[in-house]
């Protein structure tokens, strides 16, 4: 998995609804494609889940399927309850995980 890119505002007011954007480089191999030389199916390898927590509590999670484009991009909202860390965890088929962390400072 390539390095994730996340966009989280550094500062926000308590009660504001902010947009959080995340993207991670990944081919999202569907498992339906065939190797043109050998005719064998290329095994499925996708990122199957994204879990996002804010200050230790679950904020948003998603199960991703092969119909998601390569380099999966997911954006969602957070109603800022105060300062805290936003932690992203992506899980690939096979169980490998990648994480990213950003801090929001509430004003």
């Amino acid at each position: 998995m390539a390095k994730p890119r996340v966009k989280v505002p550094k500062k926000a007011k308590v009660g504001d609804i902010v947009e959080i954007k995340s993207m991670i480089g990944h081919k999202m191999e569907t498992g339906l494609r065939k190797n043109k030389k050998t005719g064998k199916a290329i095994p499925r390898k996708i990122i199957n889940s994204l879990v996002v927590t804010f200050a230790g509590k679950e904020l948003f999670s998603a199960i991703l399927y092969p119909s998601v484009s390569a380099n999966p991009y997911v954006a969602f909202n957070l109603k800022v309850p105060g300062s805290g860390d936003v932690v992203f965890t992506w899980t690939e088929d096979g169980g490998k995980t990648t994480t990213a962390k950003k801090t929001i400072t509430a004003a």
Binding site: Y65, V68, F76, K79
Partner: peptide
């Protein structure tokens, strides 16, 4: 996609 939201989300909104 199957997305799960919490009241902390503020808005039930997802983009991809």
């Amino acid at each position: 996609i199957s997305a799960k939201f919490t009241p902390m989300s503020g808005k039930a909104y997802v983009k991809g």
